[in-house]
Design a protein around this nucleic acid. Structure first.
Lengths: 233, 233
DNA sequence: GCAAAAGTGTTCCCCGTACACCCATGT
DNA sequence: ACATGGGTGTACGGGGAACACTTTTGC
């Protein structure tokens, strides 16, 4: 099929953002065959002088302000020979996260869609989207990746809403604050937000101590002995 | 550089196996330029009618008996434009695991090398190997991936040796048994091994309850409420 | 004062760790 | 008997979950 085994390599981005109480993904509507009218993930061809991460950032810049994308990480390669029409294409997919307060301007053909109610998607982009959300959910548990979903400063209630939306289940504000504080990923700013129209105590504002990915829960089990981390027998 | 943006796509396998008290990787020695004499990971060109996983299995079959490879999973894409000489190549790397009792016949140019004492490696294969070992170490903590390092049946002492070698630190046989049993990944076979020449109580033999990857430690934190797993507010 | 929203204190319990102690076999 | 290696019982502690209670605001 391909001349001499050379294959077109694409990059794709699953850009996620919490909208209201659900996670949404950035999709654009195709306006030509194949898959005319269907919704596709942003992305494009890998260029000659860039690695896949640089490439996905370049393509993403056509759809959103890159400054709004707080985190990008590689997800997986999708290479089923029949994942699209000929000619054959291999794609490296990424996950990108946009804070909930950023509402980047997007082109007319582009929009956010709740992941649990996707419109007709192009090729295997629906599967890739769901894989991206699963990655986010897993990392919320044992890393500080929440920084990429949250505004610079936020109340615990807002953070609870973001975590609950991303995870798809209720989250206790009490325990969320305690866990993240204990791990040192959450620090108070010292300022407070104004109460709502119906009153209530003003909420303290917090921020993430770092805005880069860090594993905060070195897995519970099979950790090295408390002292003397050397030796293997 | 490439005609019309078409790129050669390779697959590579970091095949790991516990040898003695250290993890080793399967490498073959190149016998022509570029990188003549250096040691490389098994792999090759992605074919037209296969996805990357099928491809890596096909290439691996040239070096080892595939039946001995108990687990294969995708690792990452390596795509730095300067990761090798022109023409440009993109590689999808995999991790493969071989049980310690299997000692597959390998071609004359191929051998196992301890990961912490690699010979001169070709291209970026040393980095890829270390990334593969890191993946194994992480998954040992929260999955049943040990099944791919262990024989069909084994004593707790043998299993302890495998975990200690892979993780690079001491592991308590007592707690290893308890943790894995509590998670239901380890089941007794009912038989025992013969004691060594110096006596000692005969060891009970165990096996893994499943020989397919399963996440056994749904992360400690941020799990859904104990009851009523629905709703998100 | 009362409702509403935020934050804290307390208790419970799971589960990994550490370590002492008991069991089965060879010489 | 006693040494050697295998297995079990038990106590400790960290940390997440649940929930009651206090604090601060608007009306």
């Amino acid at each position: 099929m391909e001349a001499e085994g050379l294959i077109a390599h694409d990059v794709l981005a699953v850009v996620l953002r919490i909208t209201g109480t659900v996670p949404s993904v950035l999709l654009w509507q195709r306006a030509r065959e194949p898959q005319d009218g269907r919704w596709a993930l942003p992305g494009g061809r890998l260029g000659a002088a860039e690695d896949v991460e640089a490439s996905v950032r370049r393509h993403l810049a056509e759809k959103v302000d890159l400054a709004e994308v707080a985190h990008v990480e590689q997800l997986s390669v999708f290479s089923d020979p029949h994942r699209g029409p000929a000619p054959r294409r291999v794609a490296t997919a990424f996950v990108g996260l946009v804070p909930s307060d950023a509402d980047p301007a997007v082109p007319a053909d582009t929009a956010w869609h709740p992941v649990d109610a996707l419109p007709p998607t192009a090729f295997d982009h629906g599967d890739i989207t769901r894989a991206g959300l699963e990655r986010l959910r897993a990392k919320l548990s044992y890393t500080n990746i929440g920084f990429a979903l949250a505004p610079e400063a936020f109340t615990i209630s807002e953070l609870r809403r973001l975590y609950a939306a991303a995870l798809g289940h209720r989250v206790s504000a009490t325990n969320l604050q305690r866990v993240l504080t204990r791990r040192g990923v959450l620090v108070p700013t010292g300022t407070t937000a104004a109460p709502g129209p119906s009153g209530g105590r003003p909420a303290a504002l917090f921020r993430f101590s770092e805005r880069a990915l860090r594993v905060t829960d070195p897995f519970a089990t099979l950790r090295p002995p408390s002292c003397d981390p050397s030796g293997s027998s």
